[in-house]
């Protein structure tokens, strides 16, 4: 059973007049991510919708911005889905270093907040409202680099802790595992493994040029 988006829009406008949102493809785009927990809590508690079950949290990369998409259902009323989405900028998302637990400060929002343009760099975490977001937000952070503020355990989910970058972003470049870099060689030699001179020279040349060993992008058959 579907809940018409107009109904939710009407209800939200009446009850939460401060929240700015607009419909995008059968879903609600909440302009300011800071309002997301408010909206989610309202939808969860309101007796009309009772959306008590957060089915899916995922990210998406739309080149200029990142999106976090939420699919809400109601187990009590057996209806849904209601799709919420928020947009965040790409540049502000930094990798928190999980080893010492301190987060790299993501760039603060500068200037007056303009609702029309996406300025937010972080999304507030929904874990306190829906626990099902716990692992899924970690996954979205891992693969897209969307930072969920207030997440109890903001580590990567699939990749190892030292991994750099976010593999599902469209601008992600894969490392070439065949070519060693200077740091790799240092690591190997510290463990008493001999590295051929050829590889060392290649690594030095790369280091001098300030490049990383990136894999050739596979030929993308996007043209169809």
């Amino acid at each position: 059973m579907n809940i018409p988006i107009e109904e939710i829009k009407k209800e939200l406008e009446a009850r939460l007049p401060d929240v700015k949102f607009r419909p995008v493809r059968d879903s609600l785009l909440i302009e300011d991510p800071e309002d997301l927990p408010q909206v989610a809590l309202f939808l969860k508690e309101s007796p009309k919708f009772l959306l008590d079950y957060l089915s899916s949290v995922t990210g998406a990369d739309y080149l200029d911005y990142l999106e976090s998409v939420y699919h809400l259902y109601s187990m009590a009323k057996k209806q849904g889905p209601v799709v919420l989405r928020v947009r965040v900028t790409k540049s502000h998302t930094a990798v928190p270093s999980p080893i010492n637990g301190s987060k790299t400060e993501a760039g603060a929002v500068q200037g007056p907040r303009d609702i029309k343009k996406i300025k937010a760099g972080k999304v507030p975490s929904l874990v306190s409202i829906y626990r099902s977001a716990e692992l899924q937000e970690r996954e979205a952070f891992d693969t897209f680099g969307i930072i969920y503020e207030g997440h109890p355990d903001p580590r990567r989910l699939f990749m190892w802790e030292e991994f750099q970058g976010h593999p599902l972003r469209k601008d992600y470049q894969q490392e070439d595992t065949e070519v060693l870099e200077t740091t790799d060689i240092a690591w190997l030699e510290a463990r008493g493994i001999k590295v051929p001179d050829e590889m060392k020279e290649k690594a030095k040349a790369l280091h001098a040029a300030g490049l990383r060993a990136l894999a050739q992008k596979p030929e993308k058959p996007r043209a169809g």
């Binding site: 089915s55 899916s56 995922t58 699919h71 899924q136 996954e139 058959p221 996007r222 169809g224």
Partner: peptide, 23 residues
């Protein structure tokens, strides 16, 4: 659950699996 976003090309722009085993 499967979440698929199409951009009108032969490949999906975004493809996500909501895996019950994980959640």
């Amino acid at each position: 659950g499967f979440y698929v976003v199409s951009d009108g090309t032969p490949q999906p722009w975004r493809y996500h699996v909501r895996a019950p085993s994980l959640i």
